[in-house]
Amino acid sequence: MQIEVEELTKLYDLKRGLQPTSFSVKKGELIAVVGHNGAGKSTLMKMLAGWILPDNGQATIDGIVLRNRMAVVEKVGFVPEIPNLFDFFTVEYNLKLFAYLFRTPFSRVDEVLREFNLLSFRNNKIQTLSKGLKQRVNIGRTLLANPSVLLFDEPTSGLDFEMTKELYRLLKNIHDDGKTIFFTSHRPEEIKTLATRIMVLHDGSLIFDGSPKDYFQSEVYVNLYAL
């Protein structure tokens, strides 16, 4: 197993957060983490990314414990819902800064610019870009270090139809490269089209973990998400 999560817990006020949760993930899976707002999806993602420290429990990625941040960041890339880039600098500057910090050669920046159709925007400041373009830069930055696991928190939030389609294409390409992907989502069509496995969180607890086919036939889907 590539990822092992054991009793991972993080609780905030009013019982929000993530109740003790356990699961394991094989290499190359494309997992949709589904749930209402406040279900604990982002908390799970942020804990796996090292943004939030768990109250309890343990997780390993390729045998490396989460608390070993220096080693984990080489394995995991996290794309948050709101792109966190240096707004006042150009696309190229942002990518080069992170390439330097990842100790990746600058030639990789050109590759990413090409792969993500960002060559014509390389000298544009981030603050002048649309949300979709910012998200592309954000994903490109995460892929600079070539991590084996990618976490996407609400990747299509705020994107229009065309940009959402473009992002699906990107996710599929990344998955085809053999990477393990987690993404949180509200949209059934997103889950149907992309995921190879569905995990449903409700009030901080994992209430379903299975294939998309089983999910759409399950009581969980009918009770919680079907119109």
Binding site: A49, G50, W51, R69, M70, V73, E74, G77, F78, P80, I82, N84, L85, F86, D87, F98, L101, F102, R103, R141, T142, A145
Partner: peptide, 14 residues
């Protein structure tokens, strides 16, 4: 506020 620190801490810097 802009979570830039967290972005930087996603890289192998101490």
């Amino acid at each position: 506020e802009k979570r830039l620190i967290l972005a930087l801490l996603q890289t192998p810097i101490r």
